[in-house]
C-alpha cells in the first residue's frame, strides 16, 4: 500500500463516477427542493406583505368613510336643528298672533257686551223712572218711603 502504481487510475475513475452520481442523485435534487422551498417561502412572504398592504389601504379607506359619515351626520343634525329653530319661531309667532287676535276679539266682545248692558240699563232705568212717575202720580204720595218701597218692589220683580 506504500507504493504508487497504475491503480491510481482507479481512484480518478471512482471519484469522477461518484461525483457524477452524487450530483445527479444528491446535490441537484436537494438544491432544487431547497430553492423551491425558498421560492415558496418568499412567495408566501410577498403574499402576506401585499395582503397587509391591502388591509392597511382598506382600513384607511374605512376610516375616511367613517369620517365622512360623521361630518354628514353633523351636517344633517345642524340642518335639523336649524329647521326646528325656524319652525319653533314660526309656531311661537303664530301663537302670539293668535293670542293677540283672541285678546282683541275678547276685548271687542267685552266692549260690545258693556255697551249692550249700558243700553239695556239705560232703557231699564228709563222704564223704572217712568213707572215710578206713574206710581207717584197714582198715589200722589211722593214721600221718601213710598219711593224706596217702590224701588224695592221694582228690584224684586226685576230680579
Amino acid at each position: 500500500m506504500l507504493n504508487l502504481n497504475w491503480s491510481i487510475i482507479w481512484t480518478f475513475v471512482n471519484i469522477i463516477v461518484l461525483f457524477l452520481l452524487l450530483r445527479i442523485f444528491l446535490f441537484k435534487p436537494v438544491m432544487k427542493i431547497l430553492d423551491k422551498r425558498a421560492g415558496e417561502i418568499k412567495k408566501t412572504l410577498d403574499d402576506a406583505e401585499t395582503k397587509k398592504n391591502e388591509a392597511a389601504e382598506l382600513k384607511a379607506q374605512y376610516a375616511e368613510e367613517l369620517k365622512a359619515a360623521g361630518t354628514r351626520a353633523d351636517a344633517i343634525l345642524k340642518e335639523a336643528t336649524d329647521n326646528a329653530k325656524v319652525q319653533r319661531e314660526k309656531i311661537i309667532d303664530k301663537a302670539k298672533k293668535d293670542a293677540d287676535n283672541l285678546i282683541k276679539t275678547a276685548e271687542k266682545q267685552i266692549e260690545l257686551d258693556r255697551q249692550q248692558t249700558m243700553k239695556e240699563m239705560r232703557s231699564q232705568i228709563a222704564d223704572v223712572a217712568l213707572r215710578a212717575a206713574q206710581k207717584a202720580m197714582e198715589n200722589d204720595d211722593v214721600s221718601e218711603s213710598s219711593i224706596s218701597s217702590f224701588l224695592r218692589q221694582v228690584g224684586e220683580s226685576d230680579d
Partner: peptide, 8 residues
Amino acid sequence: DLNVTAGL
C-alpha cells in the same frame, strides 16, 4: 492506500 490519497 497511497494510490487513493495521491489520486485525490
